[in-house]
Design a protein around this nucleic acid. Structure first.
Lengths: 235, 235
DNA sequence: CGGTCTTTTGAAGTGCTTCAAAATACGTGG
DNA sequence: CCACGTATTTTGAAGCACTTCAAAAGACCG
């Protein structure tokens, strides 16, 4: 297996211990087939290291690869005409991205933190899926799962600032390993660009949630004090 | 094949002439496999007639079926806590929906106009996909295509009212058969709920686009006068 | 510690919403 | 085909949630 680095430094990468898989994913990466796709990607793919802020692919690049986060956090984003940045999605360890069926990217992807991703040619995966139903099945499940994610995001963006922030935090508790302590890999600006708000509104809204005794906030950590309050606010 | 009606009236349904397929879809429903899934769905599925306003499935229903619009227009939607309705997506003839990987629906689906849909058990499709790679492939392509759609919607909702309406109209020109004359199957309120705006803002914004000589508007038709102006406004 | 980046806080501005009502389109029975 | 009642769309004026602009406070890192 090749190992390359976007920053030009090559990392010989030992195959690591299986990463802890959040419950969220275990539920979907279930039964037969789960390992088949994993093996297929590891076999045909390349591990790439990246550092914070680095671009992984650009807007309008050919969409011929599929990605899986091994460590670190990645986001897709697009710069709007007025200069604002909208983040499409955050991808945490074990999340796959780049699954959408387009010829060219409509988003860019960038690293939120240092990390490693597994990069696989889509065509190679499709070929494997063509004669291994387990691979095909798992690829479909992943894609259909990402679809549900994107649909939930459409709903989130229809809500008020307080509901968006609450929804974001609830989603994070489900995606991160520790249930009540959210260790945020991203900055306030990233959260703002994800929720379609300004950084000031995010800051003020977090304070509001804190005043409602729903959470405790520090710069990079959010402690969920009252999950039901948060859920109620989420709507 | 069975034929049922949600309105309780049974329609004996002759197999109709092949529906005109918009270019948009031809591009993706290409080559080998396209017919395989189509045949699979027709073979294992049921055709259901519905009339305007009727619900096709409800929020929290088991998500065990996949749908394809034959005629008419369908939308998925969710009622938010404050009573507002957010439309997830519109589905036009030949569009598939309900592909997302969840156990229960997070949206409801309803008919925007009278029409017919093809309803297939997801499990049946998955079983067929398990021993026919062409079916599996086409199912993945459809799902990955729907994913790209949903991601584009996230971007749309980040924009200004004028950009949203322009973007909506451009999308419609791509999805509907006639290129410059958009025959809207939905009401202003549906458009508003789709774009996360109020009906008043949609009305005012359409007028604005008309004043910019980008379009002509009547109640159920929009004529695109200047596609490049519309694209520029879209951002 | 000193410098820089990030976050918070405050005050004023604005794009969209809300509320209200007129104008128009639509369906239906006569 | 017209008249009438209802549903939809448009238009106007006021309000508000979030943004913008500005600056202080705090966090991070060599």
């Amino acid at each position: 297996m090749q190992t390359t680095s976007l920053s030009g430094v090559s990392h010989p990468l030992p195959v690591e211990d299986p990463l802890p898989i959040p419950e969220y994913h275990q539920h979907h990466a279930n039964r037969e087939g789960s390992q088949a796709l994993e093996r297929a990607m590891l076999h045909t793919g390349v591990i790439v290291s990246f550092s914070r802020g680095e671009d992984i692919f650009g807007d309008d690049d050919p969409a011929d690869k599929v990605y899986k986060v091994l460590t670190g956090t990645v986001c897709t984003y697009k710069i709007l005409s007025d200069g604002r940045r909208q983040i499409g999605e955050f991808y945490l360890p074990n999340d796959s991205f780049g699954l959408e069926n387009v010829s060219r990217r409509s988003h860019s992807a960038a690293a939120i933190t240092d990390g490693k991703i597994l990069v696989t040619k889509r065509a190679a995966l499709m070929a494997l899926a063509g004669h291994d139903p387990a691979v095909a099945r798992q690829l479909l499940i992943l894609t259909a799962f990402e679809l549900a994610r994107a649909q939930d995001r459409v709903l989130l963006l229809a809500k008020t600032a307080e509901e968006r922030v609450a929804g974001f935090l609830i989603d994070m508790t489900k995606r991160l390993p520790a249930r009540n302590l959210i260790e945020l890999p991203m900055l306030r600006q990233d959260i703002a660009d994800y929720l379609g708000l300004t950084i000031e509104t995010v800051s003020r809204t977090l304070k509001l949630l804190k005043d409602h005794s729903a959470i405790d906030v520090s710069t990079r950590k959010v402690m969920v004090r009252n999950h039901s309050t948060l859920s109620r606010i989420n709507g």
